[in-house]
């Protein structure tokens, strides 16, 4: 039975692509893409609202993932929560500690690849990310072009040729 204190993976408003050792999740609300490594993906899939953190530890070990601690699973849950991949609020375990500190503590005690979620926001403006053409100087602001302030006479966000 679901226990509101147990983490529950988000099911709605996401696109999921399963890969052999990773899971990709695209969040349709935030337009953010996440790549969960094998450990993070296992924990995420185990967050069904019935499994406690202790249960997930046991399942991880039972499926040959290797010996892990509850902190290991919490590290994944904290990242899942931060990235909006849980549908319930789970109080963060490592609040106030830097990620570096946490990784050091858990990493030293673990022989298993730590759960990692890499994330990236999809560009809001497709044109800005692929083109340096412009009609006015203001078109150049915020673009990865040779100039962010000058629309030159041939319509490029670039310095004006002498």
């Amino acid at each position: 039975m679901n226990n509101p204190n147990n983490p529950l993976a988000r099911q709605n408003g996401i696109v999921v692509q399963e890969m052999p050792d990773e899971v990709l999740v695209y969040d349709l609300d935030s337009n953010k893409a996440h790549c969960l490594n094998k450990s993070a993906a296992f924990v995420w899939k185990s967050c069904d609202g019935t499994n406690s953190v202790g249960d997930i530890v046991k399942q991880f070990e039972a499926t040959g993932g290797g010996k892990v601690t509850e902190d290991f699973v919490w590290l994944a849950i904290d990242q899942l929560g931060e990235n909006g991949l849980l549908s319930n609020e789970v109080a963060p375990r490592f609040q106030g500690q830097s990620r570096r500190q946490v990784l050091k503590t858990i990493g030293l005690a673990s022989m298993v690849a730590l759960p990692v979620i890499a994330s990236l926001v999809a560009p809001q403006n497709a044109l800005a990310s692929v083109s340096c053409t412009c009609t006015t100087n203001s078109n150049c602001a915020g673009r990865a072009c040779p100039s962010t302030t000058n629309c030159n006479p041939v319509g490029l966000c670039a310095p004006t040729a002498p």
């Binding site: 692509q17 990709l24 695209y26 999809a122 692929v130």
Partner: peptide
């Protein structure tokens, strides 16, 4: 790159990622 991180790195170059995320993610996969 692993397939997952590879896709993540391709997302900034994918024009339809916001308009057709489901289809675009499937093709990138």
């Amino acid at each position: 790159e692993t397939p997952g991180t590879g896709v993540l790195k391709l997302i900034p170059f994918t024009l339809s990622i916001r308009k057709q995320p489901d289809f675009a993610m499937g093709v990138l996969h």
